[in-house]
Structures are given as C-alpha cells and as structure tokens.
C-alpha cells in the first residue's frame, strides 16, 4: 500500500520534471527566435538551455533511481552548467571580432573600443585601472582604491 504511494509520487515527480524541462527548452528556442541581437539570444539559450537539460536529467535520475544513473545525470548537469557560460563567452568575443552588430536600442556600451583588434587584448576602463604598478605586489592593497574609485569619479564616467 505505501509502496504504491511512493511509486506514484516518484512517477508524478518524473512527469513534472520532464514537462518543466521540455518547456524550458522550448523557451530557449523561442527566445532564440524572438530576441533582436546575438547577445540577447545568448541570454535565452544559456540560461533556459542549461536549466532545461538539467531538469530533464533530474527526471532521468528520479526515474531510474540507481546510484550509477544519478551520478551520470549529475555529471551531465554540472558539465552543462559549467560549459554553456564559457561557450557564450567565447562566442560573444568572436561575435565582437567578426563585427556582429548590437541591437540599435542598446542603452550603454562600456565595452565599445576596449578591444584591441590587432593583438586581441581587452583594455580596462580608465577609472578602474591601477594607479601605480608597485601596488601589484601586495595582494589586498589594490582592492581598496579600486573599490573607492567609482564613487569618487562617478561624474566623469560618460567619457569613454
């Protein structure tokens, strides 16, 4: 009698997780279709895609209920959660270098002009830069000026 309830509960949980995961994957696809530019499409695919496949893996783990399957499901989920932001980062970077346009209604772009097209380095905005290179040797010291700097220099941050 009680085992019936337990199996029913597990089946219900599996069903719910499967459905929720599939809906999140649909959300990722719809977001990819509807968003206006590359970065905003990646917002949808990274978050919804990672959570959707993770939730489906939870459903798989509940359905089988074995240690080996659970381990593999957890490994897949962790791997996707670790790699999809990294993939988003490299693709965003590549998109910048190939000249992918951003949405015309972007509010603010502090990244503009910070990439060096020749040697592929990325510059820091002037107000967050270290003042003296001598501070670098002591680890905690550079934190203090970099944190207090934004408040002090707020007015002139409109100039790139």
């Amino acid at each position: 009698m009680t085992t019936d309830y337990v199996t029913f509960g597990l089946e219900l949980a599996t069903a719910v997780f499967m459905l929720v995961g599939a809906l999140f994957m649909l959300l990722a696809g719809l977001g990819a279709l509807r968003m206006p530019d590359l970065l905003m499409r990646m917002h949808a695919t990274t978050k919804a895609g990672a959570l959707g496949s993770g939730v489906i893996m939870v459903a798989v783990a509940i359905h089988f209920g074995e240690a080996g399957v659970t381990t593999r499901a957890v490994a897949i989920t962790l791997f996707i959660m670790l790699t999809s932001p990294v993939a988003a980062h490299v693709i965003a970077r590549a998109g910048y270098f190939t000249g992918t346009p951003m949405w015309s209604r972007i509010v603010r772009d502090e990244l503009k002009g910070k990439y060096d097209r020749d040697n592929h380095t990325l510059d820091t905005p002037p107000r967050y830069k270290l003042k003296a290179t001598a501070d670098e040797s002591t680890a905690p010291a550079p934190d203090a000026p970099s944190e207090s700097q934004p408040e002090k220099q707020k007015p002139d941050d409109s100039t790139p």
Binding site: G29, T45, A50, I80, A94
Partner: peptide, 29 residues
C-alpha cells in the same frame, strides 16, 4: 555566423535533453 554557432550549440543541448527523455522511454540508462 556567430548566431548560427549559438543555435548549433542549443541544438546540441536539445539533443542531450532528447536523449534523456529517450532513455526514460526505452528504459536503457
């Protein structure tokens, strides 16, 4: 082209989810 790369990656994620669902359906982990 970067848009298409993102979509290919999403398709791979979808395939992972498909395989998960199919393993439930077939009972082979």
């Amino acid at each position: 082209l970067p848009d298409r790369v993102v979509m290919l990656e999403l398709m791979a994620l979808l395939s992972v989810a498909f395989i998960g669902l199919y393993s439930i359906k077939s009972g082979h982990s």
